[in-house]
Simulated scan of single mutants.
Amino acid sequence: MIIRILGEGQYDVTDAHLDELNKPDSALQSAADADDEAAFHTALNALLDTVRRLGTPLPDEAITPSGLVLPEQDASLTDVQALLSDEGLIPG
């Protein structure tokens, strides 16, 4: 699956890592639901760091549709709350 981090680039992450991505995504959802700004930023950073760690960066010149789009690291809680579904940012 191709995951885009806005303002940064795309990463190819295998579907086998979905469970590992869902852990920080669940923490992000919980923090957003609680309007906990500090926990939100910690969870967002953890989610983006997990994508960077597990994924292979795609070259900037590669034009590939993204299966998931994640907010940039400095996104606000309010902006991300508007993007969240019942499953968080990562479905599954």
Rank of each mutant, 00 (worst) to 15 (best):
V69S: 12
E72W: 03
V13W: 00
D19N: 08
T50I: 10
L70F: 05
L83E: 06
I63Q: 13
E37N: 05
L44E: 13
D33Y: 04
T14Q: 09
P24M: 00
A75P: 11
D74M: 07
Q10V: 12
T56K: 04
T42K: 02
R53D: 13
D15C: 14
L44P: 15
I5V: 10
A31R: 00
P24R: 00
I63W: 09
H41Q: 14
A31Q: 02
G9S: 09
L68V: 07
I90L: 03
D25K: 00
L21R: 01
D25V: 03
P59W: 03
G92P: 15
D25H: 00
S30K: 02
L84P: 08
D49Q: 10
L47S: 12
N45P: 14
D86F: 04
A62F: 02
P71A: 02
E20K: 01
G7Q: 07
D15Y: 04
A32K: 01
A31I: 05
D35G: 10
G9H: 03
E8G: 09
G92W: 00
A27V: 12
I63K: 10
F40C: 14
D74G: 07
L89R: 01
G7M: 05
R52H: 10
A82W: 01
E61W: 03
D19Q: 10
G92H: 00
